[in-house]
Amino acid sequence: MWLIDSSIGRKLIMSITGVFLVLFLLFHSLMNIVVIISPEGYNMICEFLGANWYAMIATSILAAGFVIHILYALFLTFQNMRARGAVKYALKKNQKEVEWTSQNMFILGTIVFGFLVLHLYNFWFKMQFVELSGHGDVSKAADGAYWVSQLFSSWIYCVVYIVWLSALWLHLTHGVWSALQSLGLNNKTWLPRVKTISNIISTIVILMFMSIPIYYLLGFGSGI
């Protein structure tokens, strides 16, 4: 199967799952800022995306996207480390054109994944999981605004989330243009444009996400 055997096939899987996850992040961040505008509206979305059949299908596809992206990352990184050979360079420097992020996608991805586990525990485990399993307080399962204000009432969590989102931002700035390059959607004229578009998309997504912990950190959310 060329999607597993060939290097470009493997990169195709990485880029398609990557683009899919970026679209998810865009969707996720758009819904999140509703909690600032209207907590009631936000809870309606939480209700809508609870343990319903359509939300479950979407969650399963999303989880599959994450799993494939992470497994392929492990697989590719392992192969790439082996390709250098037994002896590594004693002294290795980069030209200034080489972005730091592009050399550290696996490390950034690992950081993002670590916080993702924490994030699932903070929200998913207390909301959709409670609805599914029936354990815990079902009455609060769709009260997203409550859990958000609960979590971000602690400044430590606000800072933790801001750090997490910064790592994700770095991951995306390389990831978005890199995905387009791997899909072959690039040329000499478009290379700087694709990089700029990639920076704009990742910055918009991350600013939308970050606005929430910052909003609570500045004390605007305490009244809810």
Partner: peptide, 19 residues
């Protein structure tokens, strides 16, 4: 196919090659 068979790694678009 030959490049993969010979044990070269996978491109991650770092741009170090061009630089």
């Amino acid at each position: 196919a030959k490049m993969d068979e010979l044990g070269f790694g996978n491109c991650t678009n770092t741009g170090a090659c061009e630089a």
